[in-house]
Design a protein around this nucleic acid. Structure first.
Lengths: 140, 140
DNA sequence: AGTAACGATGACGTTTACGTAAAGAGAACG
DNA sequence: CGTTCTCTTTACGTAAACGTCATCGTTACT
């Protein structure tokens, strides 16, 4: 069981502790649970978030910053918590993973290019400004 | 006028040509115009998209892939089409640009880390699968 | 026992980014 | 001249991702 939690250090957290730790609202956490992105345990009524939930939430928030939808993120999350499944299932999972990886690499490369573009553009504006300053210096 | 189109090569395009070229719907282009992301000229009723519009649309679609909102993209676009403004305005513009740049760099770095993570995760699954195959080979 | 405080469960509201259908203007073709 | 496109505006609809009540159930003081 390569990826299953043995739960040695399962320090659980309440919803409020989670909100403070990750800067999200309770609504968000309940929403993620409804969408099967998180699986907090229940103690009576109350939700208890495990280490696994925290790891998943971290990936969720990261994925969101990259512009992935929650549904895409859910698929990504499944890659990280495979558990003991059939090998055929795993092969399919790997295919999805390869797709996601390609997408992320493409995104990263585009982003790198965009950063360079923006840098270049800023440099032009900066040069323009400095020349204006020179003119102003000369005029004063 | 460092960034203004002189319009030498202003081959204009109809909305349909734009849609085919960029794989978007007419609705999307009109929507972007309404949100002041594009400024097609008018010939009577009809919209005519210039080289400038095409450049902007390219940046819009790129920005969307990065997970920026249209409003954020609009601010970014303004950086690329400064025109002849006051230097004080440009300084403020540069500040925004620096913020955006930092955000994009942070995103790029996170994405790079995520790509590495995913690669690592996939390798583990692949190893697991190959060991399963070995067992299967031995059993057959 | 009373009353905050925290958490749960609906259920309706909101924003973003368009989709989609209705109705009309204008060129083009047979 | 009628019809067929392409384009227009107007307007209502929709999916995603939550926000925002309202209501109710438990602890937890005091």
């Amino acid at each position: 069981m390569l990826f299953s939690d043995t739960g040695m250090t399962d320090h659980v957290m309440t919803i409020r502790q989670m909100c403070d730790a990750f800067d999200v609202t309770p609504r968000t956490l309940r929403f993620y649970e409804a969408k099967e992105l998180l699986f907090p345990r229940r103690e009576g009524q109350k939700r208890l978030f495990t280490r696994r939930d925290r790891a998943r939430l971290k990936l969720i928030l990261r994925g969101k910053r990259f512009g992935f939808s929650l549904e895409e993120i859910r698929q990504l999350l499944d890659l990280y918590y495979v558990g003991d499944q059939q090998a055929t299932q795993l092969e399919a999972t790997l295919d999805i993973a390869r797709d996601r990886l390609r997408e992320m690499e493409r995104k990263r490369d585009e982003l790198t290019a965009a950063v360079d573009d923006l840098r270049h553009q800023m440099k032009m504006v900066e040069d323009m400004l400095s020349s204006v300053d020179t003119v102003k210096d000369a005029a004063e």
